[in-house]
Amino acid sequence: MFEARLPQGQILKKLIEAVRELVTDANFECKPSGLSLQAMDSSHVSLVSLLMRADGFDPYQCDRNRTLGINLRTLASVLKCSSNDDIITIRAEDDGDSAILIFESPSSDRLSEFDLKLVDIDNEQLVIPDTQYDAVVRMPSAEFQRIVRDMQILGDSVTIACSKDGVKFSANGEIGSGSVRLKQSSAVDSEDDAVTVDLQQAVSLTFALRYLSLFSKAAPLSPTVTLSFSKDVPLLVEFRIADMGHLRFYLAPKIDE
């Protein structure tokens, strides 16, 4: 049997809200080490990779590897039936054709149970190579969300340039052009408010704002986001999930014709 109880159930709610517009169906790979998911968007331009380690659950039981194919829109609808402070348990019986979601109020006086039919998903898995990135930018996730939203009024692409001075986002379109430049923070009250650029070499790449906007829906998961860039490789956008794992998005660059 597979059973994973997540005391901070709202993490799962935020996760599914973050990916449900990008990915329709996904296979949750359940292993003794934890829960993972890898899926491409329907256009095969971006990739979502989720990891939730077993030690983030309490308790976590996985006797054998299981693949749970789940429609994320259905899952999102069901998760809306839980409260933010609910404890959420995911359970799957061996050889069963459904996943069971249990929502438990903090005082355990309310228990709801939903049985979700599993779906067969033909999911191509990709090997993600280890990459030494040219530039790694860390910034508040709310700032990332704001910049992506602001750039979208100008066009459908954004050029992100990293240098030793900081990071510059620029877009141009029919109505005009604009940019936002973030300097590396010198002194901040909280590390979560800082902008840092770890630079091996200056790099400038262009990406579709539509996807960055979808990625930024993960901002409620983590106060900070990390953007990793290298010339001619996909951008990595990473949100850490408390102390238990991460939600990563990879986006193929746009190439100047």
């Binding site: 095969h44 331009v45 990709l126 090997v127 190579p129 996909p234 193929a252 190439i255 100047d256 014709e257």
Partner: peptide
Amino acid sequence: SYLQEGIVQYFVPI
């Protein structure tokens, strides 16, 4: 104008 690359061009299927 820009050409959108696909992710499979960068990550090899298993």
